[in-house]
């Protein structure tokens, strides 16, 4: 059940998107997020979808692989969609006894579901095409000015990259612990929130214990490899802008402008 999570996973391939500077991709993702909320009608969403399809083709990551990341949030989508559909007041379109679907509700439900899907797929493209180290390098350089305010930018970046590295390991471990406990009669299948919550306790305790042990091992291993903070550190993959990076900035900004124009004009 946990193995399907693709958020935060890197998909190795040789594509334009993989080669782009992480700072460009971070900027692009932020613009893309803004654009999702700018878009509000069928035309702007069509344009957004077109842009997304182009990006997916450019990334060379199979579409089916991305959709897998959606599976985990299907339930969330359905619940949010249903609530929007039935609970929004407005002019009634259909009535089933106490339940009514209003015109505003229908619009909201469709809009919100579409936004969520675009959000998940769009942001996962960034993590799929950027190694966690590149991503944190990008964050580190983009946020570097904050060090003036004593924000530990390097440390935050490192913590993020290590967290991402350990997600698959901890997922596997969770799976293992669950199986070990199911073998001894633990019940993870039964319905009901209280029961499910109770079943989580014997799962979380060993998981936390082992995570702390791993953390202490990792700290030792990092120290043994001369890690002593960000000072005097060189970079294996230093960031510098190429022609395609500058071009991408232009593309991203013109995308947002075009979208706004479509939204206003049509």
């Amino acid at each position: 059940m946990f193995r399907e999570i693709t958020i935060g996973q890197y998909y190795p391939a040789d594509s334009l998107l993989h080669r782009l500077d992480p700072r460009v991709k971070l900027f692009g993702t932020i613009i893309y997020l803004i654009s999702i909320f700018v878009a509000g009608d069928i035309f702007s969403f069509a344009f957004l979808a077109l842009f997304l399809v182009m990006i997916i083709r450019l990334s060379k990551v199979p579409f089916s692989y991305m959709v897998k990341g959606l599976r985990g949030i299907v339930l969330l989508l359905v619940i949010a969609g249903v609530f929007n559909l039935f609970m929004t007041p407005g002019q009634a379109l259909v009535e089933f006894g106490p339940l009514t679907i209003s015109d505003v509700g229908l619009k909201n439900a469709v809009l919100m579901t579409a936004r969520m899907i675009f959000l998940i797929i769009g942001t996962s493209i960034m993590t799929l095409t950027t190694t966690p180290n590149q991503l944190t390098d990008g964050l580190e350089t983009s946020l570097a000015p904050l060090t003036i305010f004593n924000v530990p930018v390097h440390e935050i970046a490192l913590m993020m990259s290590i967290a991402l590295r350990f997600i698959p390991i901890l997922v596997e471990e969770t799976d293992k612990i669950m199986k070990a406990q199911m073998a001894r009669g633990a019940d993870f299948e039964s319905k009901g929130i209280v029961r499910k919550a109770k079943a989580m306790v014997p799962l979380l305790v060993p998981l936390f214990v082992s995570a702390f042990r791993r953390a202490s091992d990792l700290a030792l291993a990092m120290e043994a490899r001369c890690y002593h903070g960000g000072e005097g550190r060189t970079k294996m993959k230093p960031l510098h802008y190429e022609k395609e990076d500058r071009l991408s900035y232009v593309v991203i900004i013109s995308y947002l402008i075009l979208l706004i124009v479509i939204r206003i004009v049509l």
Binding site: T131, P132, N133, A221
Partner: peptide, 8 residues
């Protein structure tokens, strides 16, 4: 697993 820091 506990001494490999990076994901590549």
């Amino acid at each position: 697993d506990n001494q490999i820091i990076a994901s590549i």
